[in-house]
Computed example of a mutant assay.
Amino acid sequence: MVKKMRHWFLPGPLEEEPDDLPPGPRAEPPDTAVVDAWAKAEGVHAARLARVAGRLGALDDRLLRGPEGWRHRLAFIEAADLSWLNGDRVSSDRLALWISMRLSGAQDDPNALARIGWAVRRLTGGPGPKADLAAFLDRRDPENIEGSAERFEDRAGGWQDVMTAATDLHPITRACMGFHLWSLAGLGQLGDQVEAAVTAARIAASDGNGTIFAPLAMGGAGGLRASGLPSERLARWLDGMNSALLAAMRNLDEIEIWDARAESAMLQLSGRTPTTLRSILVQWPLISAPMAEALSGASRAAVQRNLTWLEEQGLIREMTGQRRFRVWSATI
């Protein structure tokens, strides 16, 4: 009987070789592994997601058929509500004056107004974050940045890689994931959540034709609270979006009824100023006389005369109760 010999260059059985080496570093999971957790969360809340997506589709269809001013009005309201995320608490009247005429008071924070003004611009139009996130955020690395410093474009690239890996998720789920990964990617500035929320709002509505953004804060900002596992965060996000969508549709219902009532009442008036003011009041939640003058191109006397008439007819109401720096809103 021939005895079998083991070649010297072949490794012996695994059990014969004791593992005396210290444990080495474990491989970190890829950044895109987080997508799996959000995919599972999406499956858990599929029915709720479908209902919210249906409401967003209804808003998209309504805005597609409605006047352009509706989009601006909803963006204006959403941006003012988002300002509370950073503690800025920019009121609608101050925001209106800033955006329309770049006017601010001594008590206003110019940086806060600029941040929320940026939000209004991004919620009303322009290329979305998918094309160029740095351009969308108006953020670029300085040319003289040191070689050891982490570049914003690199951080943004990591976040975008994860978002690209999540293309099979519903845009609403992907928006929620992107919002909660924002600070982890190092994209926030001093805890600024407005950028993250505006970016997410654009992503959530990326399949739409009428709506440019998905409302997130109109019904309260509870859906943007960052705590819990992806399933918990997505559940809050969907509930918050549902409330915001209902608030947006309710606002459109009210302004549509007001617009028809104002148009009927204005039939007795001549000139283009009344019609122009009606259009401005549909587009802006609050207006001042200087705003109306600048936006309409009419004289101060014509604007003041028509505002007085609208107030006498109960179509608008003055919001400040002051004699100077007065602001009006449609009576809805």
Rank of each mutant, 00 (worst) to 15 (best):
Q189F: 09
Q189I: 06
L190K: 11
L190D: 14
G191A: 04
D192K: 02
D192A: 04
V194S: 00
V194F: 05
V194A: 04
V194I: 13
E195H: 10
A196V: 01
A196F: 02
V198P: 00
T199Y: 00
T199L: 11
T199A: 14
T199R: 14
T199G: 02
R202M: 01
R202E: 01
I203P: 00
I203Q: 03
I203E: 05
A204T: 08
A205K: 02
S206G: 05
S206I: 02
D207I: 00
D207P: 00
G208P: 00
G210W: 04
T211A: 11
T211D: 02
T211L: 11
I212W: 02
I212D: 02
F213E: 03
P215Q: 08
P215F: 09
L216D: 06
A217S: 15
A217V: 09
A217G: 11
M218H: 02
G219W: 06
G219K: 08
G219M: 07
G219T: 10
G220V: 07
G220Q: 10
A221F: 01
A221P: 02
G222E: 14
G222I: 05
G222D: 15
G223K: 02
L224Q: 09
L224H: 04
R225A: 10
R225D: 14
R225G: 04
R225S: 11
A226P: 03
A226Q: 13
A226E: 14
A226C: 07
S227C: 04
S227Q: 12
S227V: 11
L229W: 10
L229F: 10
P230L: 08
P230Y: 06
S231C: 07
R233Y: 07
R233F: 08
A235T: 10
R236M: 07
W237Q: 06
W237H: 03
W237K: 03
D239Q: 11
G240T: 05
G240V: 10
M241R: 04
M241W: 02
M241Y: 02
M241I: 05
N242H: 09
N242F: 01
N242D: 15
N242Q: 14
N242A: 13
S243V: 05
A244G: 10
L245K: 01
L245H: 05
L245C: 03
L246R: 07
L246M: 06
A247T: 07
A247V: 09
A248G: 09
A248V: 04
A248W: 03
R250G: 13
N251R: 13
N251M: 12
L252A: 07
L252Y: 08
D253N: 13
D253F: 01
D253C: 07
D253I: 11
E254D: 15
I255T: 13
E256P: 00
E256C: 07
I257S: 14
W258H: 12
W258K: 10
W258I: 11
D259N: 15
D259T: 14
A260R: 15
A260P: 01
R261L: 13
R261E: 15
A262G: 10
A262Q: 12
E263S: 15
E263V: 06
A265V: 10
A265F: 12
A265P: 01
A265N: 03
M266G: 03
M266T: 09
M266L: 15
S270G: 12
S270Y: 03
S270P: 00
S270K: 14
G271P: 04
G271H: 08
G271W: 12
G271V: 08
R272F: 07
R272W: 09
R272G: 01
R272E: 13
